[in-house]
């Protein structure tokens, strides 16, 4: 912690510098719009953001899926899961709602994944919905027997990374370049990678909410 006057003067200096910089930025930035749109057709999808995320800069996303996995492994290494106190309670309203909402949410996540190829959406958006569904399920005391199976969860968590890595290695064998999908097949490759990523992202986000490793069963059996 720092005295307020010192922090204040640092912040004012920073703000002045940032404003100066922002003001001097070109009003018509060069950007990469033209390049990305020009080569959109080769990417296998028509949504430019998905094209950037999964194809043009797919390597970033590969590492990012790694970051997600590392984060949940880190959280697991730190703590045991906290089950919300509401879990296992009697939910006269919530239980019927969840019966309808959970399948709908999963369906919506899948839809977002699919639509991501043409319109706003994709694995991260779908994953966020899936994660939300998982949080709802946890709050409603559902699925606890599955969420305690650490071995199953681990497989789900690493699925995104493993499929992505296998795709990267395969593409290298087929076309000589890391993540260089054979021409014309980009869409299929992206869909496969994104589907695996969707599951891992959803699981990771949901399990981050639990804030620790599930405490019983599965590997490693040392609790």
């Amino acid at each position: 912690m720092m005295p307020r006057w010192m922090a204040g003067s640092f912040s004012v200096c920073l703000l002045a510098a940032l404003s100066w910089a922002v003001w001097s930025l070109p009003t018509a930035p060069k950007g990469l719009t033209a390049e990305s749109l020009a080569r959109l057709a080769e990417s296998g999808v028509t949504n430019p953001v998905t094209a950037v995320l999964l194809n043009f800069r797919g390597y970033d996303t590969l590492l990012e899926v790694g970051v997600l996995l590392l984060a949940i492994v880190g959280v697991w290494s730190l703590r045991r899961a906290d089950w919300p106190r509401t879990a296992g309670g009697d939910f006269t309203m919530l239980a019927p709602f969840l019966r309808v909402a959970l399948p709908l949410l999963v369906l919506a996540a899948g839809y977002l994944l699919w639509i991501g190829a043409f319109a706003p959406g994709g694995a991260f958006q779908g994953g966020a919905l899936l994660g939300g569904a998982l949080v709802l399920a946890v709050l409603g005391g559902r699925g606890r027997h599955i969420l305690n199976r650490r071995d199953l969860l681990a497989i789900g968590l690493v699925l995104g990374v493993l499929v992505f890595v296998v795709a990267a290695a395969l593409s290298m064998l087929l076309s000589g370049g890391l993540l260089q999908f054979p021409s014309g097949q980009g869409g299929v490759w992206i869909l496969v990678i994104e589907s695996a990523a969707l599951i891992s992202i959803g699981l990771t986000l949901g399990l981050l909410y639990l804030g620790g490793r599930p405490s019983k069963g599965g590997l490693p059996r040392h609790d």
Binding site: L69, I155, L157, V165, A168, A169, L219, P220
Partner: peptide, 15 residues
């Protein structure tokens, strides 16, 4: 790819 793959595998089979 090599360390990333083994890192992911080590999550599944820590022993």
């Amino acid at each position: 790819l090599a360390p990333l793959t083994t890192a992911a595998l080590a999550v599944v089979i820590p022993r």
